[in-house]
Amino acid sequence: MLTLRCPVCGIDADETELSPGGEAHLTRFGPDASDDDFHDYLFTRENPRGVHFERWRHSYGCGKWFHAARCTVTLEVFGTYSAQTTEPPAGIRAVIAEKRPGWSWRGLS
């Protein structure tokens, strides 16, 4: 079973305690955006076979949102981190670089 450590309350939570919230670090385009940007924001999602960054909510625990970095093929978790950021912290990226050399995700690497 997928287990993620909630960075807010520090508990190792099973996936039954968590709610997946989809792709992380989306740029939120509003009414002034171009059609392309708004379409991509609403519908287009990264669907990588490998490293992925996601939002999760510790719904049956502290109730807080957080981010997780995970491999979609092996379900290996590279780490979790605060929701109050617009990109993955350097520490998480270093862990991924060590375990998945050459990774990239939406322009990050």
Binding site: M1, S19, P48, T72
Partner: peptide
Amino acid sequence: DGYNNYTQRGSFH
């Protein structure tokens, strides 16, 4: 499952 994955297994729960 509610989250992206390519494992061809699925969750026990």
